[in-house]
């Protein structure tokens, strides 16, 4: 009896020591985080894209992991509905609100109301002065990296078809501006005017027909070198269009890392040149951690960057797999 007791104590002590040292190695605050007894409101404009769904899930899973209660609201990409949900959410007085994407022009007055009501506001991939913290990818980095990859693949010269329908979306603005900045150093790479316009919904179909039209307009091989989009759903349509037209010299570039696009980049025969893969699930989780830190009285920086990975033809097999595994685990194809 005493023997086993001693053993138990010893094991416990050892375990405790091990746990302590582990905690010391990893970030010290991570182990203290808790949202016990807290209610966190989560508002997303929509979850019909892979990125949105994964971030939305990341937020909810992490709040539950930390012992909090989630009020999860998906506006189904309807501005009216998101505003109504936020209005009711303010009346519910949660301990914090996490807002994920949407239309800034529409949202900002309501985000202001959240702050006026004294509710701490955190955002995912949404830069607004009203948020305590915005958790996102480093879009400056992503924009430059994907642009440089494209220029390298083009050998520093040629024409690019650019989808620029969402310049009003802050992350797209950054990525597009970075593309333009990179191109100032490569004057032989030219953007075809007028630029193309990506749309929601029917993004893939619309991109497909836009690119097909442009390829028909410039029938000589080599007259178009690449297609660029600030996200990767137009890239799907663009890639299909390039392949259907038999114009394999054209490569496509996009950002987000939807599993479908990663698979295209991994396929050596596909025209998808590269994609910058973000970690939306991690981004969602990290924003919750930030909220938990803030509610525990800790200081939180105005933004947190979660690393993204550039997946190109050379590294696709190795770098793409973890992303596909994560998607499979989440049950998303």
């Amino acid at each position: 009896m005493t023997g086993s007791m001693k053993g138990l104590v010893k094991a416990l002590a050892l375990g405790l020591a091990a746990a302590c040292s582990l905690a010391a190695i990893s970030s010290a605050s991570a182990e203290e985080l808790s949202l016990k007894g807290k209610r966190i409101g989560v508002s997303a404009i929509g979850t019909d894209h892979y990125w949105d769904l994964m971030a939305f899930r990341g937020i909810q899973d992490r709040v539950k992991e930390l012992g909090g209660e989630v009020i999860a609201l998906d506006a189904g990409r309807k501005d009216q509905q998101q505003i109504a949900q936020l209005q009711t959410l303010i009346a519910q007085k949660p301990d914090a609100i996490i807002e994920q994407l949407g239309n800034l022009e529409v949202l900002n007055p309501w985000l202001q109301k959240i702050r006026d009501a004294g509710i701490p506001l955190f955002t995912v991939d949404t830069a607004t002065p009203h948020a305590i913290n915005n958790t996102t990818s480093n879009n400056y980095n992503i924009g430059a990296e994907i642009a440089l990859q494209m220029v390298a693949d083009m050998g520093g010269k040629g024409n690019v078809l650019v989808f620029n329908g969402f310049y009003s979306v802050p992350v797209c603005k950054i990525r597009y501006d970075q593309l333009k900045y990179v191109l100032t150093s490569f004057p032989d790479v030219k953007i075809v005017e007028p630029e193309l316009r990506d749309v929601i919904p029917n993004t893939v179909q619309s991109a497909y027909s836009n690119v097909t039209d442009m390829l028909t307009k410039s029938p000589e091989k080599g007259s178009i070198g690449a297609v660029w989009a600030c996200w990767d759903v137009p890239q799907i349509g663009a890639t299909q269009a390039v392949e259907a037209a038999g114009r394999n010299e054209v490569k496509t570039y996009g950002i987000d890392g939807s599993p479908e696009v990663i698979k295209m980049v991994m396929d050596s025969k596909s025209s998808a040149g590269a994609v910058a893969a973000q970690q939306p699930y991690e981004i969602g989780k990290t924003s919750v951690d930030n909220a938990a830190r803030y509610l525990a009285g800790q200081k939180v920086a105005p933004f947190t960057f979660v690393p993204a990975v550039l997946i190109n033809k050379e590294n696709a097999a190795e770098k793409g797999k973890p992303f596909l595994d994560a998607a499979e685990k989440a049950g998303v194809k």
Binding site: D79, I83, N103, E105
Partner: peptide
């Protein structure tokens, strides 16, 4: 009323 509520005109009204 909708422009007042959204501070803007936005695409997608057809959803209503």
């Amino acid at each position: 009323l909708t422009v007042s509520r959204l501070s803007a005109s936005t695409p997608g009204s057809g959803e209503l």
